[in-house]
């Protein structure tokens, strides 16, 4: 419980700081920290395989794509003053998020949740997971594979410069 509270606090602190900072690179790196915190939560819950997959995909791959995108779309100084328009958006955003948060908190604290397994954490070995993936969920696995291929091709087509005069 204490470990969970520490993980939760650090993750939420990193995520909030990421959205409050004005330096995009710092934001991206802090978000990577938040993703690593989520992986730590998976480890705490006993989902080893998912935790390592989370680190591999988010800390290894998505973070790189994000950082490359930040560098490719960078424009000069980042210290321009905040416009009124953005400020209005921000306030509205915070009000909405606060409302949603209040609703969720009320629902969670108000509903009777019966906890089935406490300790030790249930063990699903990697082998069982693999058999589940290849057996009952093979169709989903295939579809995810096709989806990833299509997304890869789509991303390349969208981001590629088609004609020389289009180049920046």
């Amino acid at each position: 419980m204490i470990a969970l509270a520490i993980i939760a606090l650090l993750t939420i602190a990193a995520a909030s700081a990421a959205f409050l900072l004005r330096n995009l690179i710092h934001s991206a790196l802090l978000l990577v920290g938040a993703w690593a915190g989520i992986a730590a939560f998976y480890l705490w819950a006993g989902a080893e395989f998912v935790a390592f997959a989370q680190v591999l995909v988010y800390v290894g791959a998505v973070s790189m794509v994000v950082l490359f995108a930040v560098l490719l779309t960078r424009q000069g100084a980042t210290t321009a003053p905040v416009e009124y328009d953005s400020l209005k958006r921000a306030v509205l955003g915070f009000i909405t998020a606060g409302g949603v948060g209040g609703l969720l908190f009320g629902a969670i604290l108000g509903s009777p949740l019966d906890v089935h397994t406490a300790n030790p954490a249930p063990a699903v070995s990697v082998k069982e997971l693999g058999l589940l993936l290849m057996g009952p969920h093979a169709a989903a696995l295939l579809i995810v594979g096709v989806l990833l291929t299509v997304a890869l091709l789509g991303a390349v087509v969208i981001a590629a410069v088609d004609k020389p005069e289009d180049a920046p």
């Binding site: 959205f19 930040v70 958006r89 509205l92 955003g93 949603v100 949740l113």
Partner: peptide
Amino acid sequence: MSPLQLCLLFSSLLFCVGLAGALSRSNTIL
């Protein structure tokens, strides 16, 4: 409070941080 409730609170708080960020920042990457 049961550990399940703590987990759910954690996740909903994280969801709200993400929501606030997505609604309030004007940089598309963020």
